[in-house]
Amino acid sequence: MSLICDSIGFTYPDAALPLFSNVSFRLPAPGFHAFFGPSGVGKTSLARIITGGIGRFSGTVTSAGLRTLLYSYNTERLPGWSSVGRHLERVIPPSQHRRLAELVEIFGLADCIGSRFNRLSMGQRNRVNLIRYLLQDCDLLIMDESLANVDELTREKIILAVKALFPERYFIYISHNVTEVARFCDAILVFRSADKAPQTVMVQGGNLRDGESLSRSALDATLLEIMNAA
């Protein structure tokens, strides 16, 4: 299994200049990877190109051995006609219901599972949305700001749990939190502004797992590398 993007370029139909061009990278193994960069550089567009949401682009995406690629984002909503618990039970395969209960506990959602989606806070909504994606049968999941509005401690707990529970899966985490990305992510594709070449640089993150620790100097080195790349 591997994800290879070769010379990807994309221009919005009404734009004069490309959003990005000649973006190439390779993710040879499953893990918790990341796209990092300032707003508007094309992280979401590249994510949608990889998962098939955007068809008109140049270059090639090769997802060898990856059957199902999903893209989730933070402003998604669940229908409001029944409780989130009922929705989750309906869209998650019965074989995953035990894991659903486990994730609800880890994600801190036990108290609001009987509520309707519009009654939840933004952070709770994002966690509920992420759970339903995690429990789908997929090989790659892109999490576009999926933990936005979630407090730092819960985010850390969720990321570590996701890495422990789904070690065979590819994740691409899109976030603006440089420390979080540097600590928990494996390969980090750093996006640079359009006037710089190359437009992306791959940086190795701390890839922290549950029970491990990352030295201050190692974290600082990764942070520095990301900031220099950007």
């Binding site: 998962t51 999903l70 984002y73 998604e76 006609w81 869209v91 339903r132």
Partner: peptide
């Protein structure tokens, strides 16, 4: 889009569900 995306991406969208979401 923000509701239907999940159902389309996971192949769970049916016309009845699409109509129900839009009506709701």
């Amino acid at each position: 889009e923000d509701i239907e995306h999940f159902y389309r991406a996971t192949g769970k969208m049916r016309w009845q569900l699409e109509v129900k979401i839009r009506a709701f």
